[in-house]
Write a protein that binds this DNA or RNA. Structure first.
Lengths: 167, 167
DNA sequence: GACATTTGTTTCGTGTACGAAATACCCCCG
DNA sequence: CGGGGGTATTTCGTACACGAAACAAATGTC
């Protein structure tokens, strides 16, 4: 905010809400379509993500995988469990550090990775291409700013709820 | 974010990926914090959303609720089930159309709505306030453009199947 | 007024998604 | 050598989240 807060204008609030709604829409809808596409290959959305990540990088530990997917370890454990029983992936204990599990594609997983051309969040990515270079740079900058603020709030600790300078 | 040591990738592709990643980050992290905050009142994230919606509007049918929350009916049924056994909400059959169920806050639900000050996605909303008016307008415009493209793709994709065209 | 169709809600089965606790293994300090 | 503190993964219990099918009330058609 620059000059004055101007006691919640309905317009401002509506604009904020619209931004939040739009982000939720983009995320949930892209996810839904990813899931639907993945299904044609008997995969779920997260499973497709795992396959594409592993196909691109080679092998990842479970924690690296969960960092990449922005989900918790315990969630990824379940996903890998199901993928392992579907023979898409296998777990290999690391030699150097016997705590870590390396996740690797099986031959079946690899061939599936070659077959499936769609990327996770494809819908989202495609729609991005319609923006000009200038626009996507601007978008990235603004979103990055938001991200920084969120991270700052998170780092600021799990203190009070929305305890802000009220008004 | 990424585990990959992406020193200097081609900016274009990296920019797209960064945007996608950032949106996912914003959504999941805000959701996580909302959940955490709601928990202090023995609520889950979606339950807080329901309470705030009902407190603002009064009463809603299950379908209206699921539209507002961008989730499926079957999901909301479960949420309302749990809220009903916690005596936060009650189901009332509509008189005019006996198929519809109206969801209404109980007195316990209402007093909770007054007690809990935080809004769903509070973290997200707060971080938005750090943007200038100009910036949030720009952000809204660009996101809106993305949303339009996604909607267009969805409409085009649903030609084959008989999916309900939403607008 | 009997029928098929549509619309609103629930049921069911599967797959995330989370936090907390348990487990296994690493490293370090003494 | 031994224990303490830390990290990596799994287990467990609960709550979404979805699609498909079941169900019920409303509406359209004749």
């Amino acid at each position: 905010m620059s000059v004055l807060p101007s006691a919640d204008e309905p317009e401002d609030k509506a604009a904020f809400d619209r931004i939040v709604e739009t982000v939720i829409f983009l995320y949930t809808e892209s996810r839904r379509l990813t899931k639907e596409q993945a299904r044609e290959h008997d995969l779920t959305g997260p499973q497709l993500t795992v396959i594409k990540l592993l196909a691109g990088i080679g092998e990842l530990s479970l924690t690296e995988l969960s960092d990449n997917m922005q989900t918790r370890n315990s969630t990824v454990t379940g996903i890998i469990d199901r993928m392992e029983s579907a023979d898409l992936v296998k777990r290999v204990r690391s030699e150097s550090d016997r705590r870590v599990v390396r996740i690797r594609l099986t031959s079946k997983g690899k061939s599936l990775a070659r077959t499936v051309t769609i990327e996770p969040m494809a819908l989202f990515r495609e729609s991005l291409e319609s923006l000009s270079m200038q626009e996507s740079r601007t978008l990235l900058k603004l979103l990055g700013k938001l991200e920084q603020n969120v991270r700052a709030s998170l780092a600021a600790g799990s203190r009070a709820a929305s305890v802000d300078p009220h008004d």
